[in-house]
């Protein structure tokens, strides 16, 4: 009897955990998009008024970008400083690719960043700023969409997780 109860509790807990995990992804995406926007906004200032060297600019952007986006920007700065003749775009793309597992961005979000990265540090100031502003606009649109999806799906996945656990217990009982 006790064993049955423990099994039932585990059977409820497992799908609930999966549901909460999926819901958490929906919660984290707008935060990460906002972080990238903050970082890129700092980068705009650094490029436009400071003409700071790229690793330093990336580092100060990383400080403003929050934990997840900040880790990627800081990683790119490290890669640039390590040398090896890579461009800032390559450093950022590599950093993004390495952190892909811990980031909740969709392919469309990554596409926005991938369109921006090759331009950074590779053309004149106005062109870089233009591309940065374009990426900022697209990220803002993506964030609004992500917030909308969060509102719609975050709670739903939690409910569905718990309820499917309960249904499973009832069916197997």
């Amino acid at each position: 009897m006790t064993l049955k109860l423990v099994g039932a509790a585990l059977t409820v807990l497992a799908p609930s955990w999966i549901g909460f995990q999926i819901a958490a992804r929906y919660g984290r995406r707008p935060v990460e998009l906002r972080g990238f926007q903050n970082g890129l906004a700092v980068l705009v200032t650094e490029v436009e008024y400071g003409a700071t060297p790229m690793p330093d600019a990336l580092r100060s952007a990383a400080r403003a970008a929050g934990p997840v986006a900040g880790a990627i920007l800081a990683d790119a700065a490290r890669r640039l400083e390590a040398g090896g003749g890579i461009t800032p775009g390559e450093a950022l793309s590599d950093a993004l690719a390495e952190h892909r597992g811990s980031v909740c961005l969709t392919p469309a979000d990554e596409e926005i960043l991938a369109a921006l990265f090759p331009v950074l540090g590779a053309s004149d100031r106005h062109d870089q700023v233009r591309h940065l502003r374009l990426a900022l606009d697209r990220l803002a649109a993506a964030e609004a969409e992500a917030a909308d999806e969060r509102r719609r799906y975050e709670r739903m996945y939690r409910y569905v997780g718990v309820l499917s656990g309960l249904a499973l217990v009832l069916i197997l009982m």
């Binding site: 719609r152 799906y153 709670r155 739903m156 409910y159 569905v160 309820l163 309960l166 249904a167 009832l170």
Partner: peptide, 17 residues
Amino acid sequence: GVGIIVAVMATVLKQAG
């Protein structure tokens, strides 16, 4: 019980579009 849970789940899914 299965009926109740399925009904609630269908409502939740429908509300989320």
